[in-house]
Design a protein around this nucleic acid. Structure first.
Length: 642
RNA sequence: GCCGGAUUAGCUCAGCGGUAGAGCAACGGUUUCGUAAACCGUAGGUCGCGGGUUCGAAUCCCGCAUCCGGCUCCA
């Protein structure tokens, strides 16, 4: 399980529901597009013949058209290019293509110059509805996604054509000599594209399938005006400033060092404080919600995971087994089988249920090197994992309890998470275990609770765990990439596989139901997202250094030290700065270290038993009695105020 | 893992075929000062690692490592 939160700087467009896409993941993307999108309301498509059905915002439309302009430029420069898909995406657009020339960033000016010509030519986008046969004929002549007939057929376009529903309307869009198989929608002509820029390159697999050919993907972005384009890049720069990897180094929170290993972060003292505070907060919630803490080891018999089904389901992302006296052990990839053993440690009666177990369980997974990312995607991480064993009758209430706990925690941070019901995709045979009835029962509980609470959500087909459906919560990083954080998973399967039982009021043996749940998901990931959410300016309860006391001259050191002693008694993390720097310099240092409260002690304060308070947020707050300050501070920490 | 890019002092970066540079930080000294930078000085780098080309490589070429952006994966 993995999760993200809403940390967007105001200037970056907020994430947006991807419900349409999620609901129909089987669709071959492109042909047209359908994706998420920034801004506002969809504009109606311009009327032209049989109007396209695609719904797009004006910005998406502009970007989709820019993707066609990119394709036009590319096919001018490299007529052999085979185009695949070119949709708008959250930050701009891309076009996937296959061509002999390897495009590099050095090619961008050349391509952009060619695009500028197309835009200057004011080429109209002309929509034409054609029969399947007409489209096939053009594809076979290499004419789709190109400017001329070619020796080689338009292979990807033909493939897409074959995937389009038999009764679908097939449309082409043409600008200049460039014709593309495309569902629409487009701006009226290329001159409507105000400002654009190619941004980066990557590769992609055709239709997103690893088994398909690898394509070159060119990304760009476009806006109606140069001003908006500039603002977009300025906002991106701003967003990068809150990158947890950058802040992690600047604020000495953590380090990922090759000498330890990729994806294996070491939390430095200041980062460790944040993690401890997060854990303490969760521990209080666990107590409130009636959980029993348990502890389990870092390795366990591979048989445990054979029984659960994790092995060999995920064998390729587990580390190799360790052999100890002829028995095989796994570096723990999941905590649940161990918690299951805790449940099975004694006979259970229905009177004992629900049993709720929780642990900060560290697990290790062989993540692909290209996926590693600071604290948010690592190879060893700690789940704030919990497992609830209950009767089927208790399931719904327990599920609600999990949801409430997640909401309480998210509210503490002001996180704005997105919620997704993750279901299995029945097409993917062999990816799941358990009976259809159990899957249906589990899904209905999730849907019922989500609907009762009117929780805004999307549906992710194929996102379920192999043993059951789940409700996942996503948060967003500084670049608006989504990460899974909290999750609640309903599982009828594992209790059966492990033959768990409880004695019912009827005296007969029954199988309990399990809920797997996590609030942070991965503590490391959550920390990374918290860092970005607050841009390193943590609320007092989380701040590694909560108060910095600074003196104007040496005269005030005794008073300042007495204050430090009091702070220590209150378990406030404070540091005394009594050096010979000017107060301006001391304040600047504290401000750069993002210390929430700065206390300035000069002769006047020492004399009157007061403190001159400066907050990171509001600046100089004037003087107040020492005791008032201490009371305010303690209260803010106790309530975990934002 | 795949495609592309990057890697120069603790940090941010300049240098791009001819003896390694700046600012900040660090360290030493001077300054006792009221809300975001006092002054002077010192030290600090086998230019990611390994090979190659060259009279000569931080600069060019080839491998590898790590990081960054995507892709794929994500119990």
């Amino acid at each position: 399980m993995h999760l993200r939160s809403d940390l967007n700087p105001p200037s970056v467009p907020p994430p947006h529901s991807t419900a349409r896409l999620d609901e129909r993941p089987g669709l071959p993307l492109c042909y047209a597009v359908l994706m998420s999108q920034p801004n506002s309301n969809p504009d109606p498509a311009p009327p032209s013949g049989e109007a396209p059905k695609v719904v797009m915002t004006s910005l998406e439309r502009l970007r989709h058209s820019t993707a066609h302009v990119l394709a036009t430029a590319v096919t001018t420069l490299w007529p052999d290019a085979q185009l695949a898909a070119g949709p708008p995406v959250e930050q701009g657009f891309y076009y996937d293509m296959q061509l002999a020339h390897r495009i590099t960033p050095e090619d961008f000016p050349k391509i952009e110059a060619e695009m500028a010509k197309v835009i200057a030519a004011k080429q109209p986008f002309v929509r034409k509805v054609v029969s399947r046969d007409e489209a096939m004929a053009l594809g076979n002549a290499g004419r789709l996604g190109s400017q001329t007939d070619r020796a080689e057929a338009s292979k990807f376009k033909l493939d897409i054509l074959n995937r389009i529903a038999p009764d679908a309307v097939i449309s082409l869009y043409q600008n200049g000599e460039f014709i593309d198989l495309c569902e629409g929608v487009h701006v009226s002509d290329t001159s409507k594209i105000g400002a654009f820029k190619l941004t980066h390159l990557s590769s992609s697999y055709y239709l997103g399938d690893e088994k398909n050919p690898q394509l070159q993907r060119v990304y760009g972005t476009a806006f109606a005006s140069k001003k908006q384009l500039d603002e977009h890049f300025a906002a991106l720069e701003e967003a990068k400033r809150r990158d947890h990897r950058k802040l992690g180094a600047e604020l000495h929170l953590f380090q990922v060092d090759a000498r330890v290993g990729s994806g294996l972060p070491v939390l430095l003292p200041k980062g460790a404080i944040i993690r401890r505070e997060l854990e303490r907060m969760i521990e209080e919630k666990l107590f409130d919600f009636g959980y029993h803490p348990v502890y389990s080891p870092h390795i366990g018999s591979v048989d445990l995971y054979r029984t659960s089904g994790h092995y060999p389901f995920y064998a390729e992302s587990m580390y190799d087994t360790l052999k100890i006296e002829e028995r095989e052990f796994l570096l723990k990839p999941m905590n649940c089988p161990m918690h299951i053993q805790a449940y099975a440690s004694e006979l259970r009666s229905y009177r004992d249920l629900p049993q709720r177990y929780a642990e900060f369980g560290t697990v290790y997974r062989k993540e692909q090197s290209g996926e590693l990312n600071g604290l948010v995607r690592v190879r060893g991480f700690t789940q704030d994992d919990g497992h609830i064993f209950c009767t089927p009758e208790q399931l719904e209430d327990e599920f609600r309890g999990c949801l409430r706990m997640i909401q309480e925690v998210m509210n503490l941070f002001g996180f704005n998470t997105k919620c997704r019901i993750s279901l299995r995709d029945k097409v993917k045979e062999g990816k799941y275990v358990g009976s259809d009835e159990d899957w249906a029962r589990a899904e209905s509980v999730i849907r019922k609770v989500v609907e009762d609470l009117k929780l805004e959500h999307t549906v992710g087909l194929g996102e379920a765990a192999f043993y059951g459906p789940k409700l996942d919560f996503m948060a967003y990083d500084c670049l608006n990439r989504s990460w899974q954080i909290a999750t609640i998973q309903v599982d009828f399967g594992l209790p059966q596989r492990f033959e768990l039982e409880y004695t019912g009021s009827d005296g007969a043996k029954h199988t309990p139901v399990m809920i797997h749940r996590a609030v942070f998901g991965s503590i490391e990931r959550f920390m990374g997202l918290v860092i970005e959410h607050f841009a390193g300016s943590f609320p007092v309860w989380l701040a590694p250094e909560q108060v910095r006391v600074m003196t104007i001259t040496e005269e005030q050191i005794p008073y300042a030290e007495a204050l430090m002693a009091e702070l220590k008694k209150l378990r406030v993390r404070a540091k005394l700065e009594s050096g010979r720097d000017k107060i301006g310099a001391k304040i600047r240092d504290a401000q750069l270290d993002k210390v929430p409260y700065m206390v300035v002690i000069g002769a006047k304060e020492a004399e009157a038993d007061k403190v001159a308070l400066r907050s990171r947020k509001a600046g100089d707050e004037g003087t107040l009695p020492r005791t008032d300050f201490l009371a305010r501070l303690a209260e803010e920490i106790r309530t975990r105020a934002l």
